[in-house]
Nucleic acid binder design. Sequence first.
DNA 1: GTCTATAATTCGATAGAC
DNA 2: GTCTATCGAATTATAGAC
Lengths: 205, 205
Amino acid sequence: MLAFIRFHVNACWHTIIFMTNEPKRKSDITKEGILQAAKEHFSLHGYGNATIRGIAASANIDPTMVMRYFGNKEKLFAAAAEFDLRLPDLSELPKQQIGPALVEHFLNRWEEDEALVILLRSAVTHKDAADRIKQIFATQVTAMVAKLRNEPKPLASKRAGLLVTQMLGVALCRYVLKLPPVVNLSREELIEHVGQTVNEYLLGD
Amino acid sequence: MLAFIRFHVNACWHTIIFMTNEPKRKSDITKEGILQAAKEHFSLHGYGNATIRGIAASANIDPTMVMRYFGNKEKLFAAAAEFDLRLPDLSELPKQQIGPALVEHFLNRWEEDEALVILLRSAVTHKDAADRIKQIFATQVTAMVAKLRNEPKPLASKRAGLLVTQMLGVALCRYVLKLPPVVNLSREELIEHVGQTVNEYLLGD
DNA sequence: GTCTATAATTCGATAGAC
DNA sequence: GTCTATCGAATTATAGAC
């Protein structure tokens, strides 16, 4: 098991990684450290403005090591942005609870895994990231919506589209742009009000 | 009055500008052409990935002319991203129509003025653009919400926050990321369903 | 495994001729 | 007003010594 100590000098984060249990090859530890630093830099600056050198500095390692382990910047990004929405099966819930439960799940995933912020901040200018987001929401979300009710695919696609505008809007304002009126909303307020909207989009009409 | 002819060679747009009426100084025409090209490049690529050289090429002009007219890249961006939401006074409308009317106004503004897409695509990685968006939504939107009903400011701020997540989410998915399920929604569908949500956020409880 | 040196680009910005 | 030439900085990526 690996553990991290993180500290920052001159407004720049650094990571020290150490083992807590099973021994692991040094190369794996190094790779984990690079990946952790990469996630942070891509998350903060987006694909284009994150640099191999900056990532290497945060991981306390030589920049050439990053290339050695990940080949190039694209592959490093792909590794750092690996993500799964892990949408739960909501079909058993009472209808009134589906929306709030889904919003809570989204908030949790967004806060526990940097990958979505990475993808969102990069997708706006980086084609690979945009394609990943399109794929995630085209497959996982539409499938979940279609499963919820037995409707023809075009209608499920409309519901999924409306749902995505609201959920990505929350993520953009709260976790990427950090707009004060949205950051100041509590989790409970978001779950209640946005949950009601999601319910309308998924089950309304 | 100025008019534009636009064509593209090698997947890159170019602009020819000519007068239709009143004569104008050549320097003004040049400046207009640069600004038009700049809006397009910032809108497509964001601040960091748009280049002075690319903008100059689109405007059929020497790159040094851009610097001459606008000083530096920051000032050129500020000129290209100049924007006003022009929120209408909705307090006279029947309550049921406020949400749909507001959504329609947002869609119109977004489609007739590139500046909002410019700001949104740049705000994610460029601090100046993020600050502009924060300012626009902190002032114009919150003021409109507060005017709609006579409520204490913290409550108006919550309503404005929820509203912004939905409206920026629509803009992000439809005009920036161009997610298929959202692009495929018709204007009428957006006005109807998102309008209902907006009504809930602005007037609910 | 690690690091120095450097190649090859690209960009914003400036100096200065005409 | 216009353009050539160029500076200085930053980046990804590679070659090769130890």
